[in-house]
Nucleic acid binder design. Structure first.
Length: 288
DNA sequence: GAGACGTGGTA
DNA sequence: TTACCAAGTCT
């Protein structure tokens, strides 16, 4: 399946910052962490600002984690900002300020899992590894397995399946990874796939079978957000980001009426290292 | 391994 | 308006 996908990718790929020639490995790492569960359009502006301010891992490590969390702004899942700051510190101190190329070394960094580690090794360094995200899983499920949706993620199986379609050549393999991912993002999308524009429509198992409805196990549904602890955490974090001085519990109380839920959210933020302080002295972002 | 973890766009 | 979905990771 690689060749038509690679040809399509070379024609149709979006012009994105991390695809520019000479884009640094550090930029690739930052972009991949920002892109975890977050759309490209929301990432691009934050990424550019981030790299302007912190051109290398050591630059970020020299700033307090509070500044990383502030610069993360409203990208969501702010623990990623904390993890990125921690990863930058490790890279600066233990890797000579050079983003590791080895997948296992990358996996050892906070906030970097199976996807991000291989994405950095492949997109920043051009090495040959299978890169599997939700787009890849959906394309493979349809084209190869004849299923309308990817089931629950199964890391080892998913990696093996992608490996099975990867060309031997390094550069072709990298382009295949990027191409399958881009295909899933632009054409083979979840809701209304544009099969007329698909370079492998003529060999897609799902299309050949007449688009059968999905029957196997499904990926777990996302929990309701409205009224959740996640929402409360988000509201509190917005307050902390906006303030240079500790935020009092009375001020925190203004963002959510339920005292018990507020206390729970606050405690979890402190536990996660996203906030520090207490009811007596107020709460603020972590100063490191 | 199921569930927690933000935020915003789209239908 | 509700529900789904988005370049996942961690516990």
């Amino acid at each position: 399946m690689s060749s038509p996908v690679v040809a399509w990718f070379r024609e149709q790929a979006r012009d994105l910052p991390w695809r520019r020639p000479g884009f640094p490995a550090w930029g690739t790492l930052v972009s991949e962490i920002m892109l975890q569960q977050t759309q490209v359009a929301r990432v691009v502006p934050r990424l550019e600002a981030w790299l302007t301010r912190w051109p290398t891992p050591a630059d970020l490590a020299a700033s307090p984690p509070s500044e990383a969390v502030r610069a993360w702004d409203r990208l969501g899942y702010p623990r990623r900002a904390l993890a990125l700051h921690a990863a930058a510190t490790v890279i600066a101190e233990q890797h000579g300020n050079v983003v590791p190329r080895d997948v296992d070394a990358l996996l050892a960094l906070p906030g970097i899992g199976d996807y991000t580690a291989r994405a950095v090794a492949v997109f920043a360094y051009g090495d040959r590894h299978p890169v599997v995200d939700v787009n890849v899983r959906r394309v493979l499920a349809r084209a190869l397995l004849g299923q309308g949706e990817p089931g629950p993620a199964k890391a080892k199986q998913d990696l093996r399946l992608m490996e099975s379609v990867l060309p031997a050549d390094r550069d072709e393999a990298a382009a295949t990874n990027a191409g399958v991912m881009e295909l899933g993002a632009l054409v083979c999308v979840a809701r209304a796939p544009a099969c007329d524009a698909c370079p492998i429509a003529d060999r897609c198992a799902w299309r050949a079978a007449g688009y059968p409805a999905h029957d196997g196990p499904r990926a777990p549904k996302q929990a309701r957000f409205a009224g959740s602890d996640r929402q409360v955490r988000g509201l509190i974090m917005a307050e902390l980001r906006a303030s240079d001085v500790p935020v009092t519990v009375d001020e925190v109380a203004l963002v959510w009426p339920d005292a018990e839920q507020r206390a729970r959210a606050l405690a979890s933020l402190v536990r996660d290292g996203l906030a520090e302080g207490d009811d007596a002295s107020g709460y603020r972002l972590p100063r490191g």
